[in-house]
Structures are given as C-alpha cells and as structure tokens.
Design a protein around this nucleic acid. Structure first.
Lengths: 186, 186
DNA sequence: TTGTACATGTAATTCGTTACATGATTAT
DNA sequence: ATAATCATGTAACGAATTACATGTACAA
C-alpha cells in the first residue's frame, strides 16, 4: 500500500483554514516547500480523490463578478484521518535522493580540472539558499523564540525553518571540507 | 524533458566494471543507496532502454550449469554520455522531501503528549543510522585519509560516506535542539 | 532436501512533471 | 489596453513501487 503523503499534506493545510486548490498550490511555494511540494495538476487531482473519500467537502465562493472559487473544508473524517497520520511514527527512508552526491560517488570519472568548479558551483548555490533561509529566520523569529507557544501555529513554522537551515549548513560544511580535502590532494 | 537520473547512475556503475542487472540492484543496497536507489523491476526496464539507445551492450555469462547471466558493458557512446552528465552542474532542488519534517510543520495538531515520543522515535532511528555509518567509516577510512588518491575509486566512496554522516549528524542535532525547545515550553 | 541467495522478467498501479487548454480579476 | 496574477482543469508521459511470475545455484 502506498503512503499518500500528498493526501495528508493537503489535509494538514486545510486543518488550519479552508482553501482552494490554488491556495494550496501557493502554500507549496512557501516554507513547507523545503520538505514537500506538488504541482497544481497533481493537487486538483488529489482534491477530487479526497472528495470521493469524504475527507473534505467543497463549497463555492464568488470572487469579483463571476469567478467561482472552489473552497475545500475538512470533514470530521478528514480531521480524524489527519490526526491518525500525524500520530503514526515515520520509518526513516533508506535513501534520500541527491543527484549531486550521486555524481560525487563517480568523481573518479570527472576530469580533474572540472571537479573543483562543480563543487564551487554547488557551494555557491547552497550558500545562497542558506542566506535566504537565515534572512527569513531573522525577519520572523530572531529575538522572540520565547514567545512561540506549544500550541501556536508558529511552532511548526519555526521548527521546519530551523531544520532547513540546519540541513543547508551541514551541506555547506561538507562541501567546504570536501573542497579542502580535494585541494590538499593535488 | 526528464532528468533520467537512474540512467546515469547505471552508466556510472558500469563505468567501473561490467555488471548484470542483479549486480546493479545489489550496488543500490550499498553506500550509494544513501543517495540513490531503485528496485530490480525498474533497473531491468532501464537496461533495455539503454540497450536501445546503444549506450550499453549485452553479453551472456554462464553460471554453474545453465544459468545465463546477462552482463552489460558500456559502449563508447555510453562513456561519452556519462562524462557529459558528470560535467554538467546540478541545480539544487527547491524541495527535498521529508515526511517527518512535514509532520512537524503540522505539530500544532498533534496531541501534546504524543509530540516528544514522536521526536524521540526519530532520534533513536537517526542515531542508530549514524552509528552504523560511523562504524563503516572507522572500518574503511579511519587513520588513512591521506592514502586516498585523487583518481582512486575510494575517493567517491569516502566523500559520500562523509556526506551521509554529516547529514545524519545535522538531523540528530536538530532533533535534540527541537526536543529541548519543546520541553522548555511545557 | 530445503532454504537462501542468485537471477530475470512483466503487469498493474501510483506518484509526479510537463504540456495543453481556458477563462476571470486586478493593477498599471 | 495589457500584462501579471488568480483560478481550474485534462492529457500525456515518465519515474517509481508493489505484486505477480519463474527458474537456477549453492551451502547446510
């Protein structure tokens, strides 16, 4: 049986407030996009399935003159399903796919003069991303970590942002260490 | 156009030595499984495609009395394709899927008494994995990092193993920090 | 002889992306 | 007016897993 992660991601987003497919799509460009995302085509398809399963219900909201926004709301069943999923422990995956690391595994087949540029390019991209994440952290949470309550809707945001920062810091550290290691070999 | 990562992973594995589909499948249970893997069904299918594309060639090896092992070898075209792929810089992905982090984003909907057990379960699993990775590192590379040559087939292995260790250490650190953060809130 | 590992494949299904397709709203 | 954003959908394709299916080799 499949894991249906997107299903539960959508239920989770709808738990906070009713949303349209479009709204859900744009949530997946925000913080949570660091750890899950989907294209609108997959989202609209999944919403139909969730309606079938009676985990969500649809109602129409008129925007402007005649644009019909399809809003979705969790049913009691949907809330229960989400709660069950959230409480169930996750097995950590054996594989966390990373194309750059895969290439590094084959490093002996990369011409020597191309190796450091490849690492440097990754490092630039990862440092860029890390600096964006840190800016967001500064903007939203710096000097007010104490204010974040256990049941607040900020806690989840805070924790995944610190997770993303930690992940990118670790990536940057490894890249720098590897660059030093390789340089020292030449 | 699609990225065809598995295609290049297989070419990379065959670059070192000829292998059967079964051999390739078992490579994906070793070190590289930290960063890429595939089931045998997908591998046999991909091998057929690579034959069609003339990037690999097949020959038969007899094992025992009559078991025909289908061995694959890179063509010149295949070597070129691999070299091109390896030299081409990778865009870092905007999303690195992580189901546990997704759940954490929805932490406000997890009953308070279930939160720490969920984090503790993740921590146990990650620490277990980290300790296995460190054992492998000790066994294979400890006290002989200087011996690893730039063109050697150990370098790739060394770098991905240190990458995996770095990733897991970062995960463990974040889990511990988060547990402290949450505990301090109660 | 019997179980485990070796060995190869296809079918069905699900998950995910890209491309195709259309139309309304809003800010410039 | 017109461009950007809002808004919803389907079709085609590709990537990946699970299930189905079969047979050999080898060691205990």
């Amino acid at each position: 049986m499949a894991k249906r992660v997107l299903k539960h991601a959508i239920l989770g987003l709808l738990r906070k407030q009713d949303m349209s497919g479009y709204d859900i799509t744009s949530e997946f460009t925000k913080e949570i996009s660091q750890f899950w995302s989907a294209k609108h085509s997959q989202i609209y398809t999944e919403l139909k399935k969730l309606l079938d399963e009676k985990l969500i219900e649809q109602y129409i909201e008129i925007s402007g003159v005649k644009l019909e926004k399809k809003m979705y709301t969790l049913t009691e069943e949907g809330k229960k399903e989400l709660a069950q999923w959230l409480m169930h422990p996750e097995q950590i995956p054996e594989t966390e796919k990373d194309t750059f690391a895969l290439k590094v595994y084959f490093i002996q087949y990369i011409p020597e003069e191309k190796i450091l540029p490849l690492f440097q390019d990754q490092l630039d991209q990862r440092e860029q991303k890390l600096s964006e994440l840190k800016s967001r952290y500064q903007l939203i949470f710096a000097q007010r970590e104490e204010e974040i309550g256990l049941g607040s809707d900020e806690l989840g945001h805070y924790l995944v942002l610190t997770k993303a920062i930690s992940r990118e810091e670790s990536y940057v550290d490894w890249l720098k260490k590897s660059i030093r290691f390789i340089r020292q070999k030449r």
